[in-house]
Nucleic acid binder design. Sequence first.
DNA 1: CCGTATTCTTACTCCGGAGTAGGTAACGAG
DNA 2: CTCGTTACCTACTCCGGAGTAAGAATACGG
Lengths: 215, 215
Amino acid sequence: MSVEDRRVKRLPREVREKQILDAAVRVFSEHGYHEASMDEVSEVAGVSKPMIYAYLGSKEDLFAACIRREAGLLLEAIVAGVDATVAPDMQLWMGLKAFFEFVGGNKQSWRVLHRQVISQGGPFSDEVLAMRSRAITLVDALLVGVATKRGMDEHAQKSTEAMSAALVGASESLADWWLDHPAVPTRTVVAWLMNLVWMGFGDLVEGNTWSPSDH
Amino acid sequence: MSVEDRRVKRLPREVREKQILDAAVRVFSEHGYHEASMDEVSEVAGVSKPMIYAYLGSKEDLFAACIRREAGLLLEAIVAGVDATVAPDMQLWMGLKAFFEFVGGNKQSWRVLHRQVISQGGPFSDEVLAMRSRAITLVDALLVGVATKRGMDEHAQKSTEAMSAALVGASESLADWWLDHPAVPTRTVVAWLMNLVWMGFGDLVEGNTWSPSDH
DNA sequence: CCGTATTCTTACTCCGGAGTAGGTAACGAG
DNA sequence: CTCGTTACCTACTCCGGAGTAAGAATACGG
């Protein structure tokens, strides 16, 4: 009985670190950074608290490590999902699809990345805001490419960064909405967003702008 | 000297409550809910801590009160800014304009509403998510109106709610972006968003949909 | 001028939870 | 077998900050 009963012990450091990070992501995603306690993380990870401090450092460090890992996975998934040789609209399509697929398959990761991080003004936000910036930059590059190629006017070009921010925000928001409506298939959600955003941008490129009648 | 030196004391309850709420909004917007301490709020408000507990209740209650007040002001500003008799696109324009103007003029309120609330899964989120829902519903009504009037197909109609969520998210995200680029005038930002979103929706209504070539 | 209600303060209690001290047990090398 | 190293635990310390007890000072009606 001593063999079976005994908890699996004395695993190499790498494995424990992974277990701890997994547990941390789960706990943080459930309670948020502040409500989460190191005790609960240790409990979920099946490891005592000092291990966490020995391996991952302070609570802040631990959270940052979670962010870094998950953000890396997300970005990785996106760039892996995009074929840079196809047309811009298809690139956007593929990127969005990869994004939504990741969110659908890793809801916890998404919760940690999106909900938790933005609010804390701490050193974490840097981590995620950096990723967010990378995402925005990615989209911006796409838009700028299209805009300059088609000879978009200067004023409209200035708007691409803002548009990218809006698009990224729309994606995030739609992802949240989607979490509450899981019945909708991935392609559908992405198609909706593409229609909203690409058609709108297409008009913009063509010079088909909207403007208020009076005011 | 006793007259001037003496801090202004013994104000009626209403006034104190307002002072406390003002201070709370400021402190919460700077540090976030958890990092904010009641001691700091009391200090900023120029009132001792037990007053807060006497008038506004617990920290949670205080935060909820902030949210309620600010959310109310925001929604009020939006509906006040919209003329329900004009064309739908102008209604959206006016609503967005009112929204961005509010954000520009009340950055602290916005920070509290947007950044802080979403993350905490507590009873606050209900408050703001309710407001968010109202905003989405408002937009959705607009879109549905347009869609049905122009005989949009059923499939596309189903997407209006999602589109509204995306639009609200885009607005929020763009508002955040705007806070970092205050040089851009309000009208301009709103115009960008209108172009992106209304032109896209317009295409959708016309049946001008985008779809991926392969995949 | 007395009682009662309201405004307001100082000076605490108390606890959750971050972080640690110090020790035990398992492995691997020589 | 022993010595060093690494994995791991129990059982604490300690502090920030939420919330409170108990009373002081002012207003005001009668």
